[in-house]
Design a protein around this nucleic acid. Structure first.
Lengths: 214, 214
DNA sequence: ACCATATTTGTACGAACGTACAATAGCGAG
DNA sequence: CTCGCTATTGTACGTTCGTACAAATATGGT
């Protein structure tokens, strides 16, 4: 029985390897964060040698960007699950949509860490900022569609819709951050309820959105 | 005319030097962000030698924590300016309070970068997370006070107040993030207006806050 | 079966990092 | 003036980082 001491080399096609590297990097991000991300750590996590990184990627910068692109997709898809369960009223759908981002699975520290690190990394790398904007824009579009569905027949001014979208997007991000900070379920509950309240309130008026006047 | 080639050594008391180091670190954070922060960079910025850092600080960790403590104070104080200008109605005061965090000065990229980096750094360093929570809690308390003032005589349930505080805190953070991302003045306007709307709406009811029921 | 090519490994190198420390320079008390 | 002390400098050490590259190994077409 020939027992080779060396572990067998497993050959993969280029694209597969790239995918493995990116996935490994993503797991590193989840486990130890952006600050501790390094080429060697990624290679270890993927079970491959350091050289592969320079073989398949031009830069660490490229690895980083592609990893965050992958992360963005993951994060976005995670919020989309269970959305098409049963046909419901537009308002109920919006409610489910908002709740989905705050299910127990999704509030796991891993996810939020990656998301917040993504914000931070976007400060330094313009390409990552672009990826982040893309993720954000997709989510925003989705939200806008749902709010328009809630509006339905009522003639809600476009400016009112925009106000709701802008505000709720901000509130959601803020709630994630707050959860990471304090882990208060009540605060999340409050934020989501208030968002629904705001929608109902604005919808109940046909006049343009009120600007606060002192 | 004796021209000493060496630059003169300027002696300071210990506390002064510590302060200078922290301020230099803060400026580094503003200019180039957390990712590029290093002992040598800080020393250069402060115009002192590298050795001083180990002389006055145990760790880089200590420098980091103290710098973020300083930053937190700066950020908090920046939002407090111009608040005591003229006595106004509680609602107007709340309005000014919300607006203050979004004046042109305060939306400068420097400030937001430090704030977001602070969120990110808090993920890795528990001490920084504590500092961040402290800043956040102080701000939250302030907001709560103002909202209670708006409530005034009306018997608004504590739960409603809590809902408003949780939601508006989240919205403000989210708006900062969104501004950094897209720089849309309209979005900020919308978020702030919606926050005031929400307050008015909730205040206009004496019943407990509505929870959305499907 | 064989060879060109693609994949993989291991190692090496320079730069930058945090930290430690001996040497030097100013300061203040006596 | 001088001596002890504190502040300050400059340098050196061990790590870790990103990147490069030669050598080794598997693959696939012919």
């Amino acid at each position: 029985m020939p027992d080779k001491k060396r572990k067998p080399r497993v050959f993969r096609s280029g694209d597969e390897r790239r995918g493995e590297v990116i996935e490994a990097a993503f797991h590193c991000l989840q486990e130890s964060g952006y600050a501790k991300l390094s080429a060697r750590r990624i290679a270890d996590r993927a079970g491959i040698s350091l050289g592969q990184l320079t073989y398949y990627f031009k830069d660490m910068r490229e690895v980083l960007v592609e990893t965050y692109r992958h992360a963005s997709l993951q994060l976005f898809e995670a919020t989309q699950q269970g959305l098409s369960d049963a046909p419901k009223s537009p308002t109920e759908q919006l409610h489910v949509f908002l709740e989905t981002g705050f299910t127990r699975d999704f509030l796991r520290r891993d996810y939020l860490r990656v998301r917040i690190d993504l914000w931070s990394a976007a400060l330094t790398h313009e390409e990552i900022a672009a990826v982040e904007r893309e993720l954000y824009e997709r989510y925003r579009l989705h939200l806008k569609t749902m709010i328009e569905a809630v509006a339905g027949d009522r003639e809600v001014p476009a400016a009112s819709i925009a106000m709701l979208v802008d505000t709720i997007m901000a509130t959601l991000d803020g709630l994630w951050l707050d959860w990471e900070r304090r882990g208060s379920e009540a605060a999340v509950r409050n934020g989501l309820d208030a968002s629904m309240l705001l929608v109902e309130y604005v919808m109940s008026r046909t006049s343009p959105p009120q600007q606060y006047k002192p």
